[in-house]
Write a protein that binds this DNA or RNA. Sequence first.
DNA 1: CGCGGTGATACCTGGCAGGTATGACAGGAC
DNA 2: GTCCTGTCATACCTGCCAGGTATCACCGCG
Lengths: 287, 287
Amino acid sequence: MDTLETRELRYFVAVAEELHFGRAAERLGMAQPPLSRAIQQLERRLGVCLLQRNRRGVRLTGAGEVLLHEGRAALNAIAAAARRTRRAGGADSPGGPRGLLVLAVKAAASHELLRRLLAAYAAEPDSAEIEVLPCGIREQEELLRDGRADVALMHTPWNSLAGFDSEELTTEGQVAVLPAGHPLAARGTLSLADVRDVPDLPLARWPTRGTYAPGPGPEIHNQTQLAQLIALGRTVAVVPDSARSWLWAEHTAVPLTDAPPVVTHIAWPAHSRSLALAGLVRTAARL
Amino acid sequence: MDTLETRELRYFVAVAEELHFGRAAERLGMAQPPLSRAIQQLERRLGVCLLQRNRRGVRLTGAGEVLLHEGRAALNAIAAAARRTRRAGGADSPGGPRGLLVLAVKAAASHELLRRLLAAYAAEPDSAEIEVLPCGIREQEELLRDGRADVALMHTPWNSLAGFDSEELTTEGQVAVLPAGHPLAARGTLSLADVRDVPDLPLARWPTRGTYAPGPGPEIHNQTQLAQLIALGRTVAVVPDSARSWLWAEHTAVPLTDAPPVVTHIAWPAHSRSLALAGLVRTAARL
DNA sequence: CGCGGTGATACCTGGCAGGTATGACAGGAC
DNA sequence: GTCCTGTCATACCTGCCAGGTATCACCGCG
């Protein structure tokens, strides 16, 4: 009587995202009428109006917004339960894998730290196997939430640690990456203002939540592209010190005096209680 | 094909907790055979063995343990979605409540801070209604997780903030609460060692996760009981400074020099994004 | 060797999820 | 006004599956 079925959550989230019963039904691989009925039934069971069916289209009510957020979180938790259970399966069978941890890392970030962590953990007794899953920085949080990953190396201020348990690992400064021949490349240190005010080298722009801030610099989609544009003398970028590991010969990194420090954390879903994870975190904290 | 139904999660959690199909079925209000079948089906769908059916009883496998943990979290998320949606319902109807926030507080803790917070928030424009839900300190986290509460006042080091977003509010010292006539009550300050070493006043013992640590002091179940035992000269307790608000005339509070400080936070589920909650947090941070 | 207690199997049935066909209604073109 | 179109809701049917009852297979124990 008061327990939501995952089917209903899936249906509602689809409708709330599409704001269109027909398209939502198509996305769900079903016909539109049963979907309409299911949503009505959900509204009756909750005793709440979720959607404002106006002539021409659908809008979310306040309660609908709440269910969209909370429902997404619940669906993530359900998917995580299924994935983590599957991953743990077979760990009992003697001779089988003793456990597998999926570690989400932003591609090419903290390369040296990661190398040392993997080596140190592999040397531990009873260590589990670690699968390294390179991904985008925004993706990490989603991967942890929906169970595709178990643990992640995160970097403030870019990642948000809200909702996760975490342990601080290292702090590093940031550097400006310039084309090797540029006059500024000869300086020993720079300030953010120096970098922002170079007229011939507009600061590269990264997407924040899918959109680019306005500005003169080029829009960057991946690191290779950035590296090339810097090498060509078209842009300059501010990156953490450890990013030196992927610089080209044609790049020069100059330390910045006033850039915010970058802190690397190891983070995991707050409720996790696996031995393998605890071992990895302990190893990381001792590095 | 790979999506867990909440029904299956409920069933599995019941069986995993009871470790007995018959009792689990009874708890679920159903017959035992369909429950057995549902669990088998779940195991087949996940491709994982969850339970070790021995002669005489059932045991969890590793994968079963994982599903028990993750499944509980998922069920909490689902219950939270339903409850918060219901609570948000009707907030659209003009004239209806503009919103209701449920605030979980440990009974009698941070009394003055709470009073000021409620007053300051009520004075804000567009403030929602606040329902204060007094509860035990361990309960708070569960209430936030399953949606019975939206926000809580938590106290480190007793509460864990893992999994929540939070804002630090105040830090306070701790005091020893003694019977008024006791020799130690005349002292201006005390150390933890002083309090622990009084032979005639054994330190009161609080339950930690339902069990009591061994020791000579009385086992405390609630604050009233503690207050009475102190007044009777049977025990001594270490409590935060703000607990002075519930002391009796026959009590004397003496500051402790070396007790760990108590930090009060306002905490909420990390993914929450409601305007009313944001307003309350902003008000609290400005106090 | 029964007996009690366990989970598994066999079989049946009612409800409900989902499909198809169609209605109701609003807007736009003219 | 009168179509036509795009939307969501309703009506009705059907097949599947969740759940019930009866029973089995197994084991430990007095």
